[in-house]
Amino acid sequence: MSQIPLNHVFIFAIILFVIGFIGVIARRNTLFMLMSLEVMLNAVGLAFIGAGSAWVEADGQVMFILILTLAAAEVAVGLALLIRLQQQRQCLDIDALNELRE
């Protein structure tokens, strides 16, 4: 079997990261922002796995497991906050978070 070149993996990871970054910047809905952050974390994990595969080391896979753990914690806390925000404000708009200070 042939191996995918490392630069192809990095280009794909960069494209995924940029898509996630644009999603965080452009969207006002908090749920979509969290999903975009997940795409960004997966892009970083893909880069780690590609680099670990190219250098025949398991470090990339270990880092990806740590990234998955971080993503699971982010989802748990983020969704709990979103449910609470939905109950209080009946919207998921990120601008509504400014009103929580009052």
Rank of each mutant, 00 (worst) to 15 (best):
L70W: 03
L31G: 06
L66V: 07
I25V: 15
V77M: 10
L41F: 05
L37W: 04
E99M: 09
E57F: 11
I22M: 15
G20V: 09
S53F: 11
A47F: 07
E74A: 13
R101D: 04
A47R: 01
A58H: 08
I11G: 01
L85M: 15
A47E: 07
L79M: 15
V62Y: 10
R84I: 13
A73I: 11
L6T: 05
V44K: 03
G78L: 09
Q61P: 05
S36H: 00
L97F: 10
Q90R: 09
E57C: 12
L81Y: 12
M40H: 02
E102S: 08
A80C: 09
I25T: 15
A76S: 13
S2I: 02
A96E: 09
L97S: 04
A43V: 05
M63H: 04
V75G: 12
V77P: 01
G50Q: 08
M35F: 06
A26F: 14
V39N: 04
G45K: 02
I22G: 07
V39C: 00
L16Y: 03
I22T: 15
Q86T: 05
P5I: 00
A26I: 10
M63K: 02
L34C: 06
A73K: 00
E102I: 08
M1D: 07
R28K: 12
N98E: 15
L79Y: 15
L79H: 15
V75T: 14
R27C: 11
V39H: 00
V39R: 00
I15L: 08
Q87M: 11
L37V: 07
I11F: 06
R84H: 12
F21R: 03
I65K: 01
R27L: 13
V77I: 15
L79E: 12
Q87A: 13
E102N: 05
L66D: 04
N42T: 05
A13G: 01
S53Q: 14
Q87T: 11
L16I: 07
S36V: 00
I19T: 12
A73N: 03
L41Q: 00
L81G: 10
N42S: 03
E99H: 09
G52K: 09
V9T: 06
V24G: 01
N7C: 01
L66N: 05
T30N: 09
I83H: 12
A76M: 13
N42E: 00
G50D: 09
M33I: 13
G78A: 03
E57G: 11
G60W: 08
A96T: 12
M35G: 08
G52N: 12
A73Y: 01
V44R: 00
G20A: 07
I15P: 01
T69G: 09
D93N: 13
Q90P: 06
A80T: 11
N42L: 01
V9Y: 02
H8P: 03
A72K: 05
Q88S: 14
Q87I: 12
A76V: 14
F64R: 04
S2L: 05
I4P: 04
V18Q: 06
I25C: 13
Q86L: 08
G23I: 03
R28G: 11
L68F: 10
